[in-house]
Design a protein around this nucleic acid. Structure first.
Length: 283
DNA sequence: CACCATGTTCCTTG
DNA sequence: CCAAGGAACATGGT
């Protein structure tokens, strides 16, 4: 969960379901998720507001609502590592690690998050710090080159910087570098122009394929609210294998590279796992 | 018990 | 001031 493609798919499901629904109340079970705003402030701002749209920016969900007299409110959501949003009937029990839920009348919008790294806030300043959308036209090789040219950081680490490109996480950073044939340890400023061009294309391709693949996965509705519209995906037994088959290097340490047969290696960079083919991605 | 995990922010160090 | 590294956040799986 929770790199750009997963958030994109979630947003596509949530948008038509939430549009027009009114927030009757907000129940905050874990006040820390609302940092830095207080729970009381969020409840006061959202009570009675109506969802008008749900969109995505980087890995953030942006909930747009309208209060009385058409006053717009925006709410920023981040899934962290394990966060999930889903809609279920009010008579269904909420899961164990529910951070918060919105009372929508007969239904609820539930924010479940096992590790509680996720966030929900009225503070929109995180959006201002994000770099270009990788699938938008502002993400060009010239823009990427500008961001890489002064950095000695390994390119893999640099791709995780949301100010460089918004939405790439640990899985797709490894995948994009594999497809571009670039060693993850290469210092960012050492990339040649043609490598940067290839990297931009690889990032776009990897993310686009993931969104397309996720869109075709039947939603996994196992769980406490089986009959309801739950937005789990890529998580359950059946769908997961299919979903992860597309990943060519991530979590494949010691398995043969699909291109050359050399064993995939796992290294640690900036305290995160990186997977790559030492033969297809030479330093 | 040890180590690992899809993310971000804050603190320290150079 | 900036870049880079590491801890912290919290819980569960292997």
């Amino acid at each position: 969960m929770s790199e750009l493609p997963e958030v994109e798919i979630l947003v596509r499901h949530l948008d038509p379901v939430l549009r027009g629904k009114r927030v009757r109340a907000v129940s905050v079970l874990r006040p820390r998720v609302i940092r830095p705003n207080s729970a009381a402030k969020l409840q006061a701002s959202l009570r009675g507001a109506k969802f008008t749209a749900v969109r995505r920016r980087g890995k953030y969900l942006v909930f747009e609502l309208s209060r009385s007299r058409n006053q717009p409110v925006q709410l920023l959501g981040h899934l962290g590592m394990t966060g999930r949003f889903f809609v279920s009937r009010k008579d269904q029990p909420t899961p164990k690690h529910t951070s918060l839920f919105f009372d929508l009348g007969p239904e609820r919008l539930v924010f479940e998050d096992t590790r509680y790294f996720g966030r929900l806030t009225l503070d929109l300043t995180p959006l201002a710090k994000l770099g270009p959308e990788p699938l938008g036209e502002e993400f060009t090789s010239a823009a990427l080159a500008e961001n890489l040219k002064r950095s000695r950081q390994p390119i893999k680490t640099k791709l995780l910087d949301q100010a460089v490109v918004a939405g790439v996480g640990n899985i797709y950073a490894s995948e994009a570098l594999f497809r571009a044939g670039i060693a993850p340890s290469l210092p960012a400023r050492k990339l040649k122009q043609r490598q940067i061009v290839r990297l931009v294309r690889s990032i776009r391709r990897v993310l686009t394929e993931a969104v397309r693949c996720g869109s075709t996965i039947p939603l996994n509705v196992t769980g406490p609210a089986q009959a309801d519209r739950l937005f789990y995906f890529g998580q359950a037994s059946g769908t997961s294998a299919f979903y992860e088959e597309r990943l060519r290097v991530y979590d494949r340490a010691n398995q043969p590279c699909g291109h050359c047969g050399a064993p995939i290696r796992r290294i640690v960079q900036a305290a995160r796992s990186t997977f790559f083919c030492p033969r297809c991605q030479r330093a």
